[in-house]
């Protein structure tokens, strides 16, 4: 894990009507770091990552990604940042009308990541190979299982060689074996591409395998922070309980 800060979030606020989802979030992600964010469903974990790539506009605060303030940059600058930030969506978000090959070629063509068709094809094949699904290259998303969809989506995320990856519940809805494989894949990707990642998850096994640090979110703020070992052996019973699936933590 390097010292360079790739994401800095300061005092981030976001409300939807009268529901205050984020209430002054602060977060720093270093190059090569895998940061896990845990918390109950619907408390704003995905809202936070979507604010980072400006899929959702926050109400107040500052978000700095790779040295650029994403809330103040123009559309062209934002697109440049987005090329460097991969986003793995909860359901994979593969384009239903396109084959796996076309799904992977899509971001390459749109960003003109490589000029030649043959190079693009090679990149598609190497990305699929890195997730172990080269055989599925000509399949349609409807022919894939949940785990395969997640892997293909991960390959699509990797294809632009991002410096940062935001994983939105990468193991949700998968069986224990497949979720273990995805968690190991996250570690492998970090080692292979030196990416920094934010991993939103409810899966304690995933955070144990794939993260260096964990933050626990409740009521729109982070209430605890540390490594898996630190948090699971915390002196505070409420934090220890969290890893035993007792999710009600009082603010520390």
């Amino acid at each position: 894990m390097g010292q360079e800060k790739v994401i800095i979030v300061k005092d981030l606020y976001k409300s939807f009507l009268d529901k205050h989802v984020l209430r002054g979030i602060n977060l720093t992600l270093h190059r090569g770091e895998n940061l896990g964010i845990m918390g109950k469903s619907g408390i704003g974990k995905s809202v936070l990552t979507k604010c980072i790539v400006r899929l959702i506009e926050p109400d107040a605060g500052e978000i700095n990604v790779l040295g650029t303030n994403v809330l103040r940059c123009n559309e062209a600058e934002l697109n440049e940042i987005r090329k460097k930030v991969g986003y793995l969506f909860q359901g994979g978000a593969l384009y239903d009308s396109m084959s796996v090959r076309e799904n992977l070629l899509f971001p390459i063509r749109r960003t003109q990541f490589v000029d030649k068709k043959r190079e693009a094809e090679k990149l598609v094949e190497s990305s699929l190979r890195s997730v172990g699904l080269l055989d599925a290259i000509d399949k349609m998303p409807s022919e894939l299982s949940g785990g395969m969809k997640k892997r293909i989506a991960l390959a699509r995320t990797l294809i632009l060689r991002p410096e940062i990856i935001l994983y939105d519940e990468p193991t949700t809805g998968l069986d224990a074996v497949t979720s273990g494989e995805i968690s190991e894949l996250i570690v492998k990707i970090r080692e292979e591409y030196n990416t920094a990642s934010i991993i939103i998850t409810h899966d304690t096994k995933c955070v144990k395998i794939a993260t260096d640090n964990i933050k626990i979110m409740q009521d729109g703020v982070f209430v605890a922070e540390g490594t898996y070992e630190e948090l699971s052996r915390s002196s505070e019973k409420e934090i220890r309980d969290y890893f035993m699936w007792k999710m009600n933590i009082k603010t520390t």
Binding site: V53, R82, G91, A93, D96, L160
Partner: peptide
């Protein structure tokens, strides 16, 4: 609507489209 619900629209946006 299906694209929107399954976050395909968001995925498109983050890939610079």
């Amino acid at each position: 609507a299906a694209m929107s619900v399954t976050e395909q629209i968001d995925a498109m946006e983050v890939s610079g489209t």
